[in-house]
Design a protein around this nucleic acid. Structure first.
Lengths: 343, 343
DNA sequence: GTGAAAGCGCTAACAT
DNA sequence: ATGTTAGCGCTTTCAC
């Protein structure tokens, strides 16, 4: 079993097939200008040799690039996993490959990942993480992405960013309003809000939405405790504990995403608090498992896979003079975790 | 705002810094043979220009690729999302980027994705999907991967494959045994098994494990109905429906992965079947949400993120003469979805 | 310590 | 219809 040190090259295929590399290239690319018989022969030879074109050489020579980048906070989070699934599907349809990076919810790390992706000369970059309310946090990312776009790179972001790029905008504000309204209609007035980090625009927008619903009832955000913790299951658990310690009379808890809501339900269960009899719980996103929780989670659906598809599709379009925006819909999904406020 | 058509190249940096590209290259790579003052100056200039090396050119010129490939069935599936998370973490630590592809549980598509990854000259490829019981199904993948390895590529697989590569072996058989034993100890004898596609080695091995537990009690696989459907939530739902129609007296259902188990619980809930009072339900994997289901799911934990870490770590090691194997542990996690068999 | 020049494997003119 | 050749941007000998 000889260890040939390198993979077969186009030149090898051409030689074996008895044609020039130009003809071989054309045959393999299915381009014009080769008699069908020759082309077929070349393809057969290539197959036999297990030839696979070197993407780097191809890209360098000016052929189409074939990879797109995707930056998520953490792929283990179902919100991002579903977005990623959408991105990968669209990419696969177009013969593109997806490079995924974790930003770990850290703007500095996000910048690092963006640089990495740019070094790889991906055709496009999709930033799926939330934006930051402090423009400064992403100022450098913005500069780098702008430079990337000026050199022909394409960028799309999901969420509200201070980044100059096409954007898919989840309906976060309306989602916040919808879930708060639902609880208010059920008669809840002592509502606690479990929010993720205040620097995330996703969090800020959902809170704004909640505030709007409150104000429609003559209340304000000052009337409800808002606690900022991690945007994770553990953040939900820990937040519940603290919120309940300080406000034992709450009858409803809004978690600003489903993953946190899962933590809330978990904490409540381990404390033996009846949901929704004693406390109602609601989330936002409608991740796949929301329907299967105990009890099933009332939430607001955001079309995550579709958002991923939209973002990449948008990024792959020829650039337009002005930034494109595409807003998603949202839908209140009432399940078993919410009920009338106890008397 | 001029639209310079291309990103700055090494030559541009060199020119601006007043040195040759060789010196520039050495400076940026932090290699020997450049005076520190010159090197520093070059780096500063490069930074100022926003220079980022072109990975394709670098790779073509013989530098390391800096990317690894990962093939999963579907990233939206929490099992694979957690594995991917582990792979991405290890990759990030080493300055590598991860290209993710969906095989969609289709061997033909998997082959296609492998080819794609090879074309990208990734340093290593991790195949995270299950293997297939029919060696033929992956014969071509095997040939392609072998060729890849002979040319210096590295490969690691997760699961039992007919692929000549280092492997991380989840303890599937023992997991199957553990979960079946648990149910048998609870007094269940009329147990139904909801399996994924029979061609997956993961499924075959878990069934083998179940059979072993059965035999230890003087039963065989013939004594329990085994239904093969999709390895998904919907597969679990549909399977439950059929299994219960044909065997209304079952007191326990084993789903061969948690995602299916989620479907089982869902179907049972919508039929108003009490779990575990009337029917016990168990899964395998211990995906993150298993603890939060309704009721919380008894299952066998497999260390998924760690499996991803192990696989990539293994793939990145210098190749050894013989194939490496690394087995994972497993742990029975008893929760609320299983209870004593009804009298 | 620094520079010149030869590729890496491919695509895309430009010949023939 | 097919072949020749000039790069793509970088790393790496090999000279100086």
């Amino acid at each position: 079993m000889p260890k040939s040190r390198s993979a077969p090259r186009l030149a090898d295929v051409a030689a074996r097939a008895g044609v020039s590399i130009a003809t071989a290239s054309r045959s393999l690319a299915g381009r014009e200008g080769v008699s069908e018989s020759v082309a077929a022969h070349v393809r057969e030879v290539a197959l036999g040799m297990g030839y696979v074109a070197n993407v780097h050489a191809r890209t360098l020579a000016g052929g189409a690039t074939s990879t797109v980048g995707l930056i998520v906070h953490e792929i283990g989070d179902p919100y991002f996993a579903e977005i990623a699934s959408g991105v990968i599907e669209v990419a696969a349809q177009r013969g593109l490959t997806v490079q995924i990076c974790h930003s770990a919810r850290d703007p500095r790390n996000e910048l690092h990942q963006i640089r990495t992706l740019i070094a790889h000369r991906t055709d496009a970059i999709v930033v799926a993480g939330s934006g930051y309310t402090e423009p400064d946090l992403q100022a450098e990312s913005n500069a780098v992405l702008s430079a990337f776009q000026e050199t022909g790179g394409r960028v799309a972001v999901i969420g509200r960013h201070h980044l100059a790029a096409d954007a898919v905008r989840p309906d976060n504000e309306a989602a916040g309003t919808a879930i708060a309204e639902h609880l208010l209609e059920l008669g809840h007035r002592r509502i606690g809000v479990l929010a993720g980090p205040a620097v995330l625009t996703t969090v800020a927008d959902r809170i704004t939405g909640v505030a709007a619903a409150l104000e429609a009832r003559g209340m304000t955000l000052d009337d409800v405790p808002v606690l900022h913790t991690d945007f994770t299951r553990n953040g939900g658990r820990a937040g519940t504990e603290r919120l309940l310690a300080e406000h034992p009379d709450l009858t409803a808890l809004i978690a600003l995403n489903d993953v946190m809501a899962i933590g809330v339900l978990s904490e409540l269960r381990s404390r033996g608090v009846a949901v929704p009899a004693r406390i109602s719980v609601a989330g936002v996103d409608d991740v796949a498992v929301a329907a299967d929780l105990s009890p099933s989670l009332t939430t607001v659906r955001l079309p995550m896979a579709e958002m991923g598809e939209m973002a990449l599709t948008m990024a792959l379009k020829p650039p337009s003079a002005r930034r494109r925006r595409k807003n998603t819909g949202h839908e209140l999904i009432v399940r078993d975790s919410t009920g009338p406020a106890p008397a």
